[in-house]
Write a protein that binds this DNA or RNA. Structure first.
Length: 938
RNA sequence: GCCUUGGUGGCGGAAUUGGUAGACGCGCUGGAUUCAAAAUCCAGUUUUUUCGGAAGUGUGGGUUCGAUUCCCACCCAAGGUACCA
């Protein structure tokens, strides 16, 4: 019969479910260990082979930690709000809640069949009202707090009002809207309610502001950059423009410095921390005010090189800056407007990517240099981004390459302010060796000296100040979508008012359709009879007044990252109805010991969640201000997308081997499941798959149609998803688990490829054969020979070390070597096979449980202590090792494994060939690597 | 463009601190077993060769007695680039 994985896996999955083997309590004698996976978005394509990679790794580690005597929290849930469910709803009219539920059911079935040791009693779903109630609650807390720079933490708005009443805002050192003007206590008292709310909004940690979005008029909706392809909407191909809309934002910038410094205290991959550091983008410099000729306003610029201020020969503003409209002179207005229109049609990414194309327009206006009083022409150019710094730069062409290129392109004069440096070819950007010239009071100074002096002088003149700038922008928190958490706010006289905790959750209303309203309001605007509590509901139903217009609820919803910014605390106490997490639970579990997920979240989820953590920590609601001690990025399993090629402007598709270089083709993605092993597509299947192919013409090559391939992210929209179900069915979960680990290093991205899975499956069958011959259980109580014990202990050592360093791929090689050796030694001794089974159980849990039961183990193998490596079983043996002298001479020495450096030195010196070569000279340097090579340098 | 990661046989990958490159697996070739096939087992498998060797870890340089490993420049691929999750 042999290894019947189907029966075994079914049996043990049922056993674990029945005995609640993985249920964990919020208290224990054992030390705690919280191992967390990034929860999946339940997409309609089902779980693909990439998802389990991280879950298998974390499951192996969780099981390993249980063997090592830890109380392990290993939960799972669903990030169940998101755009795909909504788009599906738009297309089909199906409620996203229904499709989401269907998808979750499918995911659960798929997850269960892989034998994960999740404690499902703690499942969370971000789209459940009893979960998003607390997401909304956290939003209200953010709304009710501001960031005080003196206390260096978030404080309540109530305390801010108290300070306003006493002193106005003059002594307040807080992170706030730059447009807020100073006022006295008296002013504050005299402000009307509307004005007061407006001022407070400028301080709140979540606030309303005007931000730019991608607006698609035809679809009547806002689009993600992701939904825009070549400047037009992915859906429908309509044009997209930039538009300013009133949006909720999160003042994450208040936490810039703490987000940066916190990185030094957590064990996350250095590359990921570097990415976050760059994203936060701290730079030290100065802000400088330039007066505008004939205008009362100033231009404020941020520069990291205030020392080069005497090299300024022009200024460049971002085209979308409001100021541009105020300063542009009439005869330049047409040119400026045309240019602005052009830039609005380009995405920011295109603008940044396209640096070779220098574009810009002169506004006709001039600024005044704060020191020389020179007139400085003001230009606009799309290399200046509106949302970085102040959206304006003082251009120093001699010291900045982009300014240099711009000046050369438009024939703007370049002043050289560097001593003994030529700027004929390019700008001089070497800070460290800067010596200034033609710079008045800065002449002869270095970068550092000039920087300090010029900031001092600017501050004295009131024309600027030293400042620290962060690239990190406040996070836009509004989405004009249906399938997200409603923002718990209503409006009174146009100002946002917070709902109270008792009114939460503010449930998503039912709507007839999921597109924006005809008036352009977000989809929630389609809701009728929507109110935030029963009292309000009655008012809505019974009054003649249009209540929705008097106290309208916020119609935007929250973004995908809202729920995922705190879900890991909910797992600790998922059923709690009184609190987002109970104090007993959070005090016991504290934080996440190991977090596994992809590096694609580096500057999204992993930054936002740290921000919320710090905020909740400030309020005393969480015990630590970094939630994940250690983080590992599992590499993404990439898909291998299939492409067919359409002749541009036609309906003719050409087999890949018939492509000609003189014709332009459009590559179109097709479902990889329609492609066979020889890279040929099933044309009939393709015609049925999507209507656009039903009537198309296909040019075959020798009767077949070949596709092209490209490796990219596995995603439903790229039609390259491979599901694990088939593999589970054919080889079993244990094989799939081990194969995914065997594919390569955990951290590395790798394209999915099923070839090779049989090797891992064969290993499990060989393993099984150590225990069974035909159907007879052949394990003996005999004493194993020394070689078998040596093999076992070498394996224990290797596996323990490799699990602890997450090198699961090499673990599997070690298992294979071990089983091959035991097979050839014909070893069936219980003394060897029992520990080996425990060793294997994190990797192949079903098989291990089955054998464990047969070996007479009591209960589940899960709690069994992990085998301990015993050095004494490693037998020393004589081996030949090569020795090289300066790479010129090489011979071998018979040495024992245990020899230390001194013994090797003696052995070399006692060898007659060595003595001949040495001619009495003593070696200078000994390089001795145990077990390997000895190198002696003279 | 910018930030991050990676590039080793036909393929996935291994190689500890700079020390015998190619572990382990897939595939392929040959053999055993079989009426035959599947399965299993054994042997071989970087390239080249005048069979002594020689070359070889994306490309070109550098450091070193010695480089897959360290440094510089470049090429290619993937992830992120702020409304995909």
């Amino acid at each position: 019969m042999g290894y019947d994985f189907k029966e075994i896996e079914k049996k043990w999955q049922e056993y674990w479910a029945k005995h609640e083997t993985f249920k964990v309590l919020n208290h224990s004698e054992k030390p705690k260990f919280y191992i967390l996976d990034m929860f999946p978005y339940p997409s309609g394509a089902g779980l693909h082979v990439g998802h389990p990679l991280g879950y298998i790794a974390s499951d192996i580690f969780a099981r390993f930690k249980r063997h090592k005597g830890f109380n392990v929290l290993h939960p799972q849930g669903y990030d169940s709000f998101g755009l795909p469910a909504e788009q599906y709803a738009i297309q089909t009219g199906q409620h996203p809640a229904k499709t989401t539920q269907d998808n979750i059911s499918r995911y659960r079935t798929q997850l269960d069949q892989m034998g994960f040791s999740f404690d499902w009693s703690r499942e969370v779903r971000t789209s459940n009202p009893d979960f998003y109630k607390w997401t909304q609650w956290i939003f209200l807390l953010l709304f009710d707090h501001y960031y005080c720079n003196d206390a260096n933490k978030a404080l309540s708005i109530q305390s801010l009002i108290g300070r306003f009443e006493k002193d106005g805002n003059n002594n307040i050192n807080a992170v706030c809207d730059s447009k807020i003007q100073s006022f006295s206590a008296e002013d504050w008292v005299n402000f009307d309610e509307h004005k007061k709310q407006e001022v407070l909004l400028g301080y709140r940690l979540t606030y309303l502001s005007h931000s730019e979005v991608n607006w698609c008029a035809e679809l009547g909706t806002v689009l993600a950059n992701d939904e825009i392809i070549n400047g037009v909407s992915e859906r429908g191909g309509f044009s997209v423009t930039k538009k300013k809309m009133k949006q909720w934002s999160m003042r994450i910038s208040a936490y810039s410095e703490r987000l940066l410094s916190g990185l030094d205290r957590i064990d996350w991959p250095e590359s990921l921390k570097e990415m976050q550091r760059n994203w936060i983008g701290k730079s030290i410099g100065a802000k400088v005010f330039f007066a505008i000729e004939g205008n009362e306003k100033n231009i404020e610029v941020f520069t990291t090189r205030p020392d080069t201020i005497f090299g300024v020969t022009f200024m460049t503003l971002a085209p979308e800056l409001d100021l541009v409209q105020e300063i542009v002179v009439s005869n330049q207005k047409d040119a400026v407007d045309t240019y602005i229109k052009e830039t609005q049609q380009r995405t920011q990414r295109e603008r940044m990517a396209d640096v070779k194309n220098i574009t810009g327009v002169f506004t006709g206006a001039y600024a005044i240099h704060p020191f020389t009083g020179n007139r400085i022409p003001i230009w606009i150019g799309d290399y200046v981004l509106a949302d970085y710094g102040t959206g304006a730069v003082m251009a120093v062409p001699c010291g900045d390459q982009r300014d240099y290129d711009f000046a050369k392109h438009f024939n703007i004069p370049i002043t050289n302010i560097f001593k003994n440096v030529s700027i004929e070819e390019e700008a001089y950007t070497d800070k460290a060796n800067t010596v200034l010239d033609q710079s008045d009071f800065l002449n002869g100074l270095s970068y550092k000296e000039a920087m300090l002096l010029v900031i001092k002088v600017l501050e004295e003149k009131g024309s600027g100040a030293g400042t620290i700038n962060y690239k990190l922008r406040d996070a836009v928190f509004s989405r004009q979508r249906y399938w997200g958490e409603p923002i718990p706010v209503y409006y009174k006289n146009g100002m946002p008012q917070a709902l109270s905790l008792e009114d939460l959750p503010l449930n998503l209303p039912e709507v007839e359709h999921y597109l924006p309203t005809p008036e352009g309001a977000p989809p929630l605007g389609n809701a009728t009879n929507w109110a935030w509590n029963e009292v309000e509901r009655k008012v809505v139903a019974n009054t003649a007044i249009d209540h929705a217009k008097v106290f309208p609820l916020e119609l935007n919803t929250m973004p995908g990252w809202a729920g995922s910014s705190w879900y890991f605390y909910r797992y600790m106490d998922a059923q709690n109805t009184d609190s987002f997490v109970g104090s007993e639970a959070k005090n016991y579990w504290q934080d996440v010991d190991l977090y596994l997920g992809g590096s694609e979240h580096a500057t999204g989820h992993l930054l936002y969640s740290r921000f919320w953590q710090k905020f909740l920590f400030d309020l005393g609601l969480l015990p630590v201000d970094e939630y994940a001690k250690k983080l590992i990025n599992q590499g993404m399993i990439l898909g291998s997308s299939a492409f067919i090629y359409r002749i541009s402007g036609s309906q003719t598709y050409v087999s890949k081997d018939l492509l000609k270089s003189e014709i332009t083709y459009e590559p179109i993605r097709v479902d990889v499941n329609l492609v066979n092993a020889s890279e040929e597509i099933d044309v009939e299947g393709l015609k049925k798959w999507q209507p656009q192919f039903a009537t198309a013409i296909f040019e075959l090559s020798e009767g077949v149609f070949k596709v092209g391939r490209e490796v990219e992210k596995m995603s439903k929209s790229k039609y390259n998803v491979v599901n694990p179900d088939e593999i589970c069915d054919q080889y079993g979960a244990d094989t799939l688990r081990m194969y995914e680990m065997f594919l390569g290093p955990l951290e590395q991205a790798k394209p999915w490829n099923t070839a090779g899975i049989s090797g891992v499956h064969n290993f499990l069958r060989k393993f099984w054969k150590l225990f069974y011959k035909e159907d007879e259980f052949i394990v003996t109580d005999s004493i194993p020979d020394k070689k078998a014990l040596k093999t076992l202990h070498e394996t224990i050592k290797k596996i323990t070390e490799d699990i602890e360093s997450f090198s699961f791929n090499t673990c599997i090689s070690s298992f294979m070597i071990c089983v091959n050796e035991l097979t050839s030694l014909n070893c069936h001794s219980k003394e060897v096979l029992r520990p080996l089974t425990i060793l294997l159980s994190p990797f192949a849990p079903h098989l291990s449980e089955e054998i464990w039961e047969k070996l007479g183990g009591v209960g589940s193998i899960v709690e069994e202590p992990f085998p301990v490596f015993n050095k004494s079983f490693l037998i020393e043996e004589e081996k030949n090792y090569p020795v090289s002298f300066n790479g010129k001479m090489r011979f071998t020495l018979s040495l024992s494994l245990s020899l230390d450096k001194q013994a090797i030195q003696e052995a070399v010196l006692n060898d007659h060939r060595t003595l001949e070569y040495l001619e009495g000279k003593a070696p200078k340097k000994w390089i001795i690597v145990p077990n390997k090579i000895i190198n002696i340098v003279f």
